[in-house]
Amino acid sequence: MSSAPSITPWNVHRPPRADGRVFLVTGGNAGIGYFVAEQLAATGATVVLGSRNPAKAGEAMASIRARVTGARVRAVRLDLADLSSLTTVADSLGVDRLDAVVHNAGVALDDPPRQETVDGHELMFGTNHLGHFALTRWLMPLLSAAPAARVVTMGSFAAKSERLDLDDLQSRKDYRPKRTYGRSKLAQMSFGLELDRRLRAAGSPVASVVVHPGGALDALTPSRPPIHVRTTAARLSAAPAALLIQGKHAGAWPAVRAVLDPAVRGGQLWGPRAFGLRGEPRREAMWNHLADTTLAAGLWDASRDLTGVDPGALLG
Rank of each mutant, 00 (worst) to 15 (best):
M154K: 06
R230A: 14
L260P: 12
M124G: 04
G271K: 00
T293F: 07
G58V: 07
L195S: 01
D96C: 11
G271L: 10
L220G: 05
D19M: 11
T221C: 08
L164G: 03
V229E: 07
V12N: 05
L142S: 03
W253D: 15
F125Y: 03
N128Y: 02
R77C: 09
W253V: 07
T69L: 12
P113A: 11
A216F: 03
A62W: 01
A134M: 09
R265T: 13
L199H: 08
L80E: 05
A233E: 14
R179M: 10
P311N: 14
M61A: 11
L49R: 00
L195Y: 04
Q39I: 11
M140L: 15
S204I: 04
V25F: 00
F275K: 14
M124D: 01
L193M: 08
P147M: 06
A55N: 01
F125E: 00
F133N: 02
L78K: 05
P113V: 10
P262G: 03
R278L: 07
L86G: 08
L306F: 09
V47Y: 00
L143V: 11
L306T: 10
G308M: 04
F133A: 05
Y181T: 02
W253M: 13
L220P: 08
A105F: 02
S223W: 09
L277R: 15
W270T: 12
S204L: 02
R304E: 09
M140T: 11
L169M: 07
D301Q: 13
L277C: 14
I32L: 08
T231M: 14
L143P: 07
